[in-house]
Design a protein around this nucleic acid. Structure first.
Lengths: 338, 338
DNA sequence: ACCTGGCACTCAGCCGCACCGAGTGCCAAG
DNA sequence: CTTGGCACTCGGTGCGGCTGAGTGCCAGGT
């Protein structure tokens, strides 16, 4: 229902607007793009595109700017994913290769993504529920005090204190540690609850209380930390947002500080494959003038967490999508290696 | 050399300016404060204060605003530290008490501080070098692969992978773990290097390579992580900075993203006792229009790390200092308990 | 049926101008 | 040393006119 040329006009409008940040008019369009038609024709097309809701005028007698719906069409039909240049790829690899631990990987990823896209980057830590257990460690700190340390295959470490109802001997502790690990090492966290269910029964009566306490803390940790952690960076890029600062930037900063909001943002997208959420498509009110590009990443074929960027709806979608995808791939490789 | 009344005038100017964000004139001053003198007198005093460099006019025929030097005098001589109200104290305690682990403590502290002061909060993780070792754990993940886990008395956990030159048996590993712990548990991290220096010699020749590798990684971790970690929050408060947004806010956001800068910022202050660094007193260029209020906190009497806030030079110093001090105390308590 | 050039119209942004008023410095008197 | 008076400054604001990019529409051409 939209002719080929009209789509072409929309593409041109999006590209110009993203570049200049200013409403684009018919004359400027014909000059900057070889559309092969006159400004008047473009005007007609623009009127049609406006009727369909793809573009809008800020005020009468100004140029047009794309609407969220216009960006949507652009992303879905008109734009591809721009692959990175090979120097960029090499830079990514070099930068990520220097990481020493998981925190470092995530930290570097955030900085990298922020720099590449010149936007705000968000990286989720590998999810506990989708990871597998590498090791469970129990340390006796005091006669009735045990520290529980949980290590995942992605290098994440969680620790908790456990208060034992009665003092717990070193040998019992070693016993519990051994049995616990033989059951859960290499298994997925999601499966842990049923794997340890009957563990207390196999212990002496006097130790059962403590065993139960330890297990309870373990399960609690799994539940609590299912609210994942994440890291953000590149907030300074928000200053390149637009001219009407305070009002735009404020709610975005606020939203970015609420982990819950961000996690929802990343979580709502499909598991693998890139998701682009544009303007009002974002549920959160403060983010209706931003777009979110997110993708899953993982050490194997399956995604263990998401990463992405938050930027103005007026962003370079192909470039951003390319950068996000590339970074996700490299991070996956790094995690698989460690 | 400055009469009592002139100091009083300065105090009034600072207070009014902090409240209204607008240059304050002689007439307004006499109306809002009971100085007992006429505007003309105040004008004379203001002229004197301006000669001394404590206040300045943005343009001729506008009110006066305090200079950095003026704020300095205000903080040093004219203002106390405003204690928090008891509801506030209770709120702090309740909020911090719910923390489950160190990350949570730091996270809650940041949010709390940001909310109380309505500024950007910065909290440093307890320093490794000033903490003591609670436990060192060695886990065999593969025949020639060991994971080193370091746990501090403040609950911080660091982990590193160690590649062994030759496979390392479980018994040797247990042996090393035991000897290592007997030497370093309870000792300060700073002392660890010399405590483990001669450890390889006491092992069989074939294991010495691995023992050395493990120790090398341990020491390396200590060095690397001496660049401390920290957490920031409340950046949304930057939007309340001033009217001339983009230019002011940008360098601040950039500075806040550079951990190194922030660590220097906190580190430069004396160990305990509160430090207030005003405007150009901050070395970093991006922060010359901000003030930093920082204080050490710790589980015992000695500081293990710093926390503080970054805000506009035009801030409520007494209130901010009060909040920072109170939060530091409570965090110290929480850490001591865990 | 579609493209195109022409034309009248609109309106945000940008002067220039005058005015207002808060605030100042100075001075002479108390 | 304080105070009231007074002339002066100058940033901010509101108003009017101009400009120019951009539009919508129409009539003519392909």
């Amino acid at each position: 229902m939209l002719s080929e040329r009209r789509l072409e006009v929309l593409r041109a409008i999006v590209q110009d607007y993203v570049g200049t940040e200013e409403p684009v008019g018919s004359k400027a369009l014909t000059e900057r793009h070889r559309l092969g038609v006159s400004p008047a024709t473009v005007r007609n097309d623009m009127a049609a595109l406006e009727d369909e809701g793809f573009i809008a005028q800020p005020h009468t007698s100004a140029g047009r700017i794309p609407t969220d719906k216009g960006y949507r069409l652009f992303v879905d039909k008109l734009a591809g994913v721009k692959p990175l240049s090979s120097p960029e790829r090499r830079a990514i690899q070099n930068f990520l290769d220097g990481a020493v631990d998981l925190d470092d990987v995530v930290g570097r990823t955030v900085r990298l993504l922020a720099q590449l896209t010149r936007q705000v980057a968000v990286v989720q830590y590998p999810s506990l529920t989708r990871s597998t257990v590498r090791h469970v460690e129990l340390l006796s700190l005091a006669p009735a005090r045990v520290m529980l340390v949980l290590i995942t295959d992605t290098g994440r470490v969680e620790q908790r204190m456990v208060d034992c109802p009665v003092p717990f001997g070193e040998t019992s502790l070693a016993d519990l540690r051994a049995r616990l690990n033989s059951r859960v090492t290499g298994r997925r966290f999601a499966d842990v609850p049923q794997l340890v269910q009957d563990l207390p029964e196999s212990f002496e009566a006097e130790d059962r209380g403590t065993v139960s306490a330890v297990l309870a803390t373990l399960l609690e940790t799994l539940v609590e930390e299912t609210e994942e952690r994440l890291m953000i960076g590149g907030t300074a890029n928000l200053t390149r947002f637009g001219h009407d600062f305070p009002l735009t930037i404020r709610p975005v900063l606020e939203a970015l500080e609420e982990q819950v909001v961000l996690l929802k943002l990343l979580g709502e997208s499909e598991d693998s494959g890139m998701t682009v959420r544009i303007g009002h498509e974002n549920a959160h009110e403060g983010l209706t003038s931003t777009s979110v590009v997110a993708v899953g990443y993982g050490s194997g074929d399956e995604a263990v967490a998401k990463l992405g960027v938050v930027g103005p709806t007026r962003m370079d979608y192909p470039g951003t999508m390319g950068a996000v995808r590339a970074v996700a791939r490299y991070v996956g490789q790094i995690l698989a290696e460690s």
